[in-house]
Design a protein around this nucleic acid. Structure first.
Lengths: 117, 117
DNA sequence: CGAATGCGTAACACGGTGGTTACGCTTTCC
DNA sequence: GGAAAGCGTAACCACCGTGTTACGCATTCG
């Protein structure tokens, strides 16, 4: 989902849809790039959940899904509220640093792989 | 800046730094990928402004910059608060971008479909 | 019914991104 | 001073994402 807002074209589409729903053709008309290119951007947004589509006749209307943005904001909020490092005992962190490195060099790689997989 | 959080490795780095600063080596040790690869991810994060670095001896400590996340959240907030399209006169809103002929066709199609739906 | 419209998909080209190894520059330790 | 440690950069390569054109399918219009 975070990757969906990485592209400037998709971000512009989101702005277009901020306070109105629009059919695919009209969105594409506002860009210099070809209509199929926009169509695929719309698919990415659709699959990310940030927008939802509704078929109306032979048109496909796109609209925002505000709840998905709320999810993104919630995720980002943990970093905006991050405690500054000065308030932490990183002196202790540094002290244990060398020891932890030694331990990790032995056993971390495979564990890390399994966790994320 | 939005592109910086598009990569899963970079997102994991941000989580690592959420409540403690860390030297580059320790960050790299927690990944299966090579240290130079992590080093470049750190550079992307640095240039995006999401993290700041401090040289301490021969180590380079990384820490979050909460204010940049606040900027991101602020940008996303306009979409989370987006009014639903039903409450808007989007026909009027989009008048400028459409010829009268195109608009007439869209609206009639929409009416027919939604009556039966 | 046949033509036009709206929009998505397929196939392809290409530049950017992310991986690797090799290397160099500081800083620290003995 | 010389070796080791910490970390970034360079060069290279594979792949993915985004652009294009050609095409197909459904819906609407005359």
């Amino acid at each position: 989902m975070a990757a969906a807002i990485a592209d400037p074209v998709r971000r512009e589409i989101l702005v277009m849809l901020r306070d109105q729903r629009l059919p695919a053709g009209e969105i594409a008309d506002r860009f210099v790039i070809s209509r199929p290119a926009v169509s695929r951007h719309l698919r990415v947004l659709r699959e990310s959940g940030l927008v939802r589509d509704t078929l109306v006749g032979r048109q496909r209307f796109y609209e925002l899904d505000a709840s998905r943005f709320a999810d993104l904001i919630e995720w980002l909020d943990q970093f905006a509220r991050a405690t500054s490092w000065e308030r932490r005992l990183d002196a202790l962190e540094t002290e244990v640093y060398r020891t932890r490195r030694e331990r990790r060099r032995r056993d971390t790689a495979e564990q890390r792989q399994e966790k994320t997989a």
